[in-house]
Structure formats: C-alpha cells, structure tokens
Design a binder for these strands. Sequence first.
DNA 1: CAGGATCCAAAAGGATACTG
DNA 2: CAGTATCCTTTTGGATCCTG
Lengths: 119, 119
Amino acid sequence: MKADCTIYKTLDVIGKKWSLVIILELSKGKNNTKQYSVLKSSLSTITPKVLSSRLKELENYKLISKKIDTSSSPAHTFYSLTKSSVELLTILKDMKSWALKFNIKSEHCGSTNCKDCPF
Amino acid sequence: MKADCTIYKTLDVIGKKWSLVIILELSKGKNNTKQYSVLKSSLSTITPKVLSSRLKELENYKLISKKIDTSSSPAHTFYSLTKSSVELLTILKDMKSWALKFNIKSEHCGSTNCKDCPF
DNA sequence: CAGGATCCAAAAGGATACTG
DNA sequence: CAGTATCCTTTTGGATCCTG
C-alpha cells in the first residue's frame, strides 16, 4: 500500500474520532441541519475545542456547510450536511447493518430502526 | 446520542487508526491471509508495537484469526480475515467509490480498479 | 451564542533495542 | 520470525476562563 492510497486518504478524512458521529448527529436534524449549541449538547461528552476543530476540518473537506443567522442577537450558527456527506449516510447505514449482524450492538438499541441512529 | 449507540460502538471497533487498513492488506493476500512479516512490510510506516496491539484487538473482535505454522523454524505466523471482516470489504469498496466521486483520491490510483486497493 | 485561548492530564502512537 | 520492553513524542480530552 502506498501512503497516498485512496482508501488510506479517505480514512484520514472520515476516520477520525468524532467525524462520523458529527455527521450522524447532523443527519438527525431538520434538513440535515443543526444549530451549534444543539449539536454540542447532543454530543454530550465533546468539548468545544474538539468540536470546533472537527467542524473546521469537515468544512474544509466540504462535508458540512456553515450558515450564520444574524437576524437574532446573539447570532445563531447552523451546520448542515452537504451532498457529499448525505451520500455517506448510506455507508453509515451499511456499517450499522453489518454491526448488528455480527453482534456489535448497543444494549438500548440493537435494532436497525432506532431513533438515535435514524436508519 | 447515547454513549453506547451501535454506530458509536462500531466506530470503536473499526474506526481506530490502522484497523481498516490492516483488513484491507489482509484481503490482498491469497485466501485473505498474510504472514506477519509480509503484512508488516506492506504497512511500511507501522511500528511493531502498534501492529501487534491492533492485531490482538481485531482478533478479540473476531475480525481476524491467527495460525502458527510450526513446521518451519523459526515458526511462521499467519493472519486471516474472518467471515465478519470479509463482509466488511463491501463497505470499504463503497467508501472508495464515494471518495472517488467526491475527489478524495490518490495521485497514483484515482480509479476503482487499482492493484493497491483491490476493488 | 459561538467559539477561541490557555493549561494540564491522559492516552495513543512512534523509534529503537532486544529476546525466545 | 514474531513479537516485547522501554522510552519518548504527539494527539486527545478535560477544565476553566474569556470575548465579539
């Protein structure tokens, strides 16, 4: 394997801790969108430092987009999935099916139709 | 999202650095099997400590199996994919297709039919 | 509200040397 | 050959405080 192998690079993009989980959380929002504070509280154990650095990375990769609503004060920031990351959801879904088949599953979930993982 | 969400746990299993890359490398071997030393040299930048700890983890998860051939001296150790991880290859393939579609690709590869990523 | 700055502790990863 | 042991560097996590 060469260091710049496509799969290797892909794992750099989406294989980091929190990256896919952030994408999953955004997918639960209306129009694949969530406000920063809502996103943050849904990822209860993440710290603002880690969250904002992941958001920047994902934005650079164009996997999420950011919009600031200045009509209210203080302003609200919203993050949305892009076309790219929406297509990634299929892969997340397949990962879940695979996991359930091979018994990597959560106690409270254990099904393919769980409100926490909306598949 | 709860801490024990299925997808969250799945990422613990296969989302760690090197885990999927090791599975990919084993898939290139005859019968999805490679000798330790061959595996190691195909992952040129990995260190023995990290490699052996990942191999133990993957073995515990039953994603790989280990066999020692004592007929030669010194003995040779072989690692193979299991049924579980063979089914994961489909997901890796989908990840590659997704990456190529959104232009995360390697210079030398850039195709869906590359000997380094055998898809 | 949405982060950025700072400091610190813990964990993961890497380099190298060594052994059954 | 297939790893361990040891030491060190880097990354990650957490807490807290601050600001436009």
